[in-house]
């Protein structure tokens, strides 16, 4: 148990301690398996938010998640719900079948930028264009994390990665792909937003966005996409604090935050 190894962490068990009251705990939908994510990585935080929402909505029994290939390939090791691990880029195709065959279930994909925006862009566009009634959680950290820092379709112009050592050249590799803006243009989307988890307020807004998107599945109105700007301190060669600052100050210049589509209507 987490509480055994980290006695200072407040967990559900804390309630058992004389004189203590649990004010904050790991959601029941999140397993106590130690996460493999690097210290300071946004993934663990977004996992927790998503699982909190599922616990709060009481839909654990009715939710099926689709994990990607990338850093969050092991998402199913942490999330205590039925899950499928998709091939690289194919989460939206997998989710399409699951949701179409079980329309009363809550279905989400959890995908990084390489998975969704590079190798899986076709599956993503077509699923969204069909208005598939599931949630896409899109983690955009502008880099391939798991394979150690190669350029992603969302890498900022001029940003250095192991495969763009002199900085991303637009002439050679194009410009950062703005997934939320692209998907908002398609009639199949019901709700599209871009958030981050770089400060406490942003975390609260992200959680709200996730809840809004999952609740929308009951309406059967179309795809919801929550793009979350995330950090990658290991591959960006920054401290966690520096990386959060980079998200907030630099990434948001290329990828502005906010809702792009609400109730099927573009926000302007």
């Amino acid at each position: 148990m987490l509480s055994d190894t980290l006695p200072l962490a407040a967990t559900a068990n804390a309630a058992a301690h004389e004189g203590y009251e649990a004010v904050y705990s790991r959601p029941a939908t999140l397993l106590s398996t130690p996460m493999h994510y690097c210290p300071g990585c946004s993934h663990s935080l977004v996992h927790k938010l998503l699982m909190e929402v599922i616990a709060e909505m009481g839909i654990q029994e009715h939710t099926i998640g689709i994990a990607p290939v990338g850093c969050s390939v092991f998402a199913y090791e942490y999330m205590d719900i039925d899950m499928q691990e998709a091939a690289h880029g194919r989460a939206c195709a997998v989710a399409t079948a699951v949701k179409r065959l079980m329309p009363d279930r809550y279905v989400f994909t959890y995908q990084g930028d390489g998975d969704l925006a590079a190798i899986g862009i076709a599956e993503t566009i077509h699923a969204v264009n069909r208005g598939e009634n599931f949630l896409i959680v899109f983690i955009n950290n502008a880099v391939y994390g798991m394979t150690s820092g190669q350029m992603a379709p969302t890498t900022l112009s001029g940003m250095k990665t192991t495969t763009s050592p002199c900085g991303r050249s637009e002439a050679l590799t194009g410009s950062p792909l703005k997934i939320a803006e692209m998907m908002a243009q398609l009639p199949g989307t019901w709700y599209v937003t871009r958030q981050m988890v770089a400060n406490a307020n942003a975390v609260r807004r992200t959680k709200k966005a996730l809840r809004h998107a999952l609740e929308a599945q009951q309406l059967q109105k179309g795809t919801c996409l929550v793009e979350i700007l995330a950090n990658c301190p290991s591959n960006w060669k920054m401290t966690p604090v520096e990386s959060m600052k980079f998200v907030e100050e630099t990434m948001t210049q290329t990828f502005p935050l906010g809702d792009l589509k609400l109730e099927g209507r573009l926000c302007k």
Partner: peptide
Amino acid sequence: VASINMLYGAAGA
């Protein structure tokens, strides 16, 4: 590519 992965999702369910 999408077909076979839809198959994966459906078979997995």
